[in-house]
């Protein structure tokens, strides 16, 4: 019994280490192919459209309501101390530093990450990946690299959009609904927010873009060639990416701020 569970633990540990190793080689290969010609602009634009542009609506809605709820919560807490005028900086800082990059990455991993995994998994099941190999085209260079690059391009842009709409949502609730002074809302925001805050947010969003790109493509690429394999791969992508995003967020926050 004990030996059985030891075998189980050991086997899982070894296979975990093994897939971490092959995953690292995989993403290094993909990143190398991003900087190496041929550059596939058409494919990159298509991927950015799918990952970035088509995520606009969902990011718009989440960011608007995040900003609104932040203002609502912040107002009630701040008004206890009579410092409602700080609402603008509270909303802006929490969104720019934390909520913007993190929520944006979580939404994108749920919407686009899962789709990327499913797409690559299905290409594998239907022999499209071996077909690329047979046509002497490297599947990592043709399929994976443009997707990873598209995540890297889209995430910072989507995060910036999230920040903007989030702050606007806070403005709607704070200023228009709860009556915080408009000048104070934006004035406090400007004086409290520094370049480092914005820069930290951008660094985070880039890191999250890499994480989603890596996890979604690698899991799709190594999915079992069955229907079940692809469906569990899509689930794994969302779960793993979300966990990885939150852990990385903590690490980056402790380094950056």
């Amino acid at each position: 019994m004990i030996s059985q569970s030891l075998v189980f633990v050991g086997h899982n540990f070894l296979s975990g280490i093994q897939s971490l190793g092959s995953g690292t080689l995989f993403i290094l290969c993909a990143l190398y192919n991003i900087v190496k010609p041929p550059f596939r602009f058409a494919r990159i634009i298509k991927e950015v459209e799918f990952i970035g542009v088509k995520s606009f609506t969902i990011i718009f809605v989440t960011s608007l309501f995040t900003g609104m709820v932040l203002a609502l919560q912040g107002y009630h807490t701040l008004s206890k101390f009579g410092s409602e005028s700080l609402l603008g900086s509270a909303v802006a800082l929490s969104i720019i530093r934390e909520l913007g990059p993190v929520l944006c990455a979580l939404m994108v991993s749920g919407r686009a990450g899962s789709a990327v995994t499913a797409e690559i998994g299905i290409m594998k099941i239907t022999d499209q990946i071996p077909a690329l190999e047979m046509m002497a085209v490297d599947p990592i260079e043709y399929i994976v690299s443009p997707k990873v690059l598209a995540f890297l391009i889209s995430l910072p842009l989507l995060t910036a959009f999230f920040d903007l709409i989030g702050i606007f949502g806070g403005y709607l609730v704070g200023v228009k609904l709860l009556g915080v002074n408009e000048g104070a809302y934006f004035g406090e925001m400007l004086s409290a927010t520094t370049f480092d805050d914005v820069f930290g947010g951008v660094v985070k969003s880039l890191a999250f873009g890499l994480i989603i790109g890596w996890i979604s493509t690698f899991i799709g690429y190594t999915a079992k060639s069955t229907t079940e394999g692809v469906s569990s791969a899509t689930t794994n992508t969302v779960v793993l990416a979300s966990v990885a995003i939150l852990i990385t967020d903590y690490i980056l926050t402790s380094i950056l701020f």
Partner: peptide, 13 residues
């Protein structure tokens, strides 16, 4: 591989 061709079972288009 440039001198090889393959027709896959499901055609793999």
């Amino acid at each position: 591989r440039k001198s090889m061709g393959m027709l896959f079972q499901g055609a793999a288009l």
